[in-house]
Design a protein around this nucleic acid. Structure first.
Lengths: 217, 217, 217, 217
DNA sequence: TATGAATGAGAATTCATTCAT
DNA sequence: CATGAATGAATTCTCATTCAT
């Protein structure tokens, strides 16, 4: 129970902007780097402690559990990443009917890419652990489904009704969009090592055109 | 050296069809299931032994190392999966100039999906470990690059010259194809739990049309 | 690297007199006794832990490796045993030309016997492992050769030039001295169980006379 | 019980010259080499089996136990080595009163050195294991004491009475002789790697002179 | 709050030994 | 006689977690 309380406390901390200790900060930063690099299972708390210049006990004083440390790092990201998408971009689109789907897509892709570019390491952790841990998957995917997929589905239907995109089942369209964007993100941020030299502008453009018109001449 | 010899012996075994013991068989099967499920790092040899109804020592008598057990399971798959693609489908296409790119795509996708459907669990292991282990990635990706990507690139150029697909840089086209097909496979076989009720015919069709023409109306 | 660091840390500890934990102390003591008794290979870390009243993990927290534990026990002894010989006794002899070889011999033998009497167990460990482990032998013997043998050879030559000992090849004389003193130490401290009732005075005298004049009437 | 019977059977076999199987022979030879090289504790039966070109089970079929294999190799050597000394040389000396102690010593040393030169590996095994295993030591040393030491003591007394050697306590003389010869053998056959290029004639001469007259000029 | 020594439950691996064929 | 697959106890080592200071 202490563990859950601790986690809650940390989540709370994020919201209420109660300052985390300097050490706590350092632990989180270090953990992120190491988890992203070697994966959660292959990173020991003692390594983290050493790299963070902190006693091993300190990690547990703050996070209670290694699992908790992982979640403490992941959750704030998700809390921002998923809704973050909605807040700004979606609302505009739902109202403005001058915006074309292509522009909508372009905006979202660029927006999320920039966000992930700034949080590459956490993104890598999430992708890796999502694939690795059935448990995490079971917790995350439904959440993702309701928070993201539904919104996108909604948008798709809107644009379908406007006649901008093909009149295929929303499910099928949604799936293609998610696969393409997901594959794109994973390829660029997890598989390929060229994290810095990424021309977002160009990559976005290629992706949008591909999604809109395919490759047929 | 014993370790490598053991691995070589196992690879050899695959080729020469020297019968593996009943227990050895059971160990491999069980390991595949468990690795696919929980990931390599989260599966202990003692769990595998218990689940396979075998003494833990027996695993090591046959595979020498846990790593080895993983490789023994992965390598035969890769040996078949990667070249398997080339042999049949590619050659036909390079000669027949009646085949359209769409058909080429359809054939390859269906063919590989069927193969992976039959080897779902190993595919899941490979995807997971590829993302998880830098080491595996460094060994596998270049191999994949030379064996698969180059062939596909070749095909793309062929069809570009025939005017069937857009005259974009081969790299860009290749990337989109790989992302889409990869994302598709991962979504269907790794992320989603509905492994059995997959309508290959229909899924393939959706994918091909999406890749060819995008979603614009 | 952690392993070596740990070993270095322990060596360091010896010099800088940074207090080892009480448990660490106990582990070392217990290990010395057991290694001396049953040999390194026949003593398991779990036995040591049990005998030391410590959790097995504690051994590894402090010493990292079983090998390391052995070295941590041996090295400080060697660091003192080998140079220890030289510092005091040798220097005097090289200057004073009143000292006879017989006295020189007597002093060294007595001095080293007393030292070993106080460190019997470590001496037993070293002798056993030296014979048992090719590896240790290869590391230690050359070191012994340069640090001890050379000095003794030097002294032998000095006394030969003074006409006190036979004009035989230094090598041959050296070999006889080493064999006799070595055999003497091993017999008294390793083979025979009467470790306590040893009359150093008398034994030294016998040995010196034997070496000087042999057994002929 | 089967184990002991097996050991007895093997001892018996040696005497009654019942042919050991070809495989059995190979196992013994290989074991001798490997025990001499790496020590008993560091040599696994599976290694022996592999090196001997034999199935692991075969070792146990013949020797029942790894311990047994060791003994089967050691005992025949001891049975010959220890009494072997007595039979020829001692008897002559006890009768002939023309023989000087120096010649007696020379003969024994040369005789035993030749024997050990031919059985180097077993000698190395015995020395190593004698130091390593309290158990072996407790069995062997008393046996050695009654069979060898007593005879030598007897001879010493004889020569003392003839006035050829110093009138010191037999114990003390005996000890010096054993230490010197033992140290000599261990140095030449166990510690030093130059097993082949040993000038027995010369080494014997050096040793005898040293023992007789010491190093004083 | 922070420390770091101590823990003990497992983890991978080794190996002598057994036994059915 | 010989084989070699199978065993399971023992071994070294790792690591998240606790707790006294």
């Amino acid at each position: 129970m202490t563990k859950d309380n601790l986690l809650d406390a940390i989540i709370e901390q994020t919201k209420t902007s109660k300052k985390p200790t300097e050490k706590q900060q350092k632990i989180a930063e270090t953990a992120i780097k190491m988890f992203a690099d070697k994966g959660y299972a292959n990173t020991s708390t003692s390594e983290i402690a050493k790299a963070a210049g902190v006693a091993e006990g300190t990690i547990f004083r703050h996070y209670g559990t290694k699992d908790n440390l992982l979640l403490s790092v992941i959750i704030p990201f998700l809390k921002e990443a998923l809704p973050g998408m909605a807040g700004k971009v979606f609302k505009e689109v739902l109202t403005e009917d001058t915006v074309h789907f292509e522009d909508f897509l372009r905006r979202i892709i660029k927006n999320r890419m920039e966000f992930i570019l700034e949080n590459q390491e956490i993104f890598r952790i999430i992708v890796k652990e999502l694939l690795y841990s059935e448990e995490l998957r079971k917790e995350f995917l439904p959440y993702f489904s309701t928070n993201v997929m539904r919104r996108v589905a909604h948008a798709i239907e809107l644009f379908k009704s406007r006649g901008e995109i093909k009149d295929l089942p929303t499910d099928a369209l949604l799936k293609m969009l998610m696969i393409t964007f997901g594959g794109f993100l994973v390829t660029n941020f997890v598989l390929s090592p060229s994290h810095n030299t990424l021309d977002i502008e160009q990559e976005t453009e290629n992706l949008v055109r591909f999604v809109m018109d395919g490759i047929r001449n």
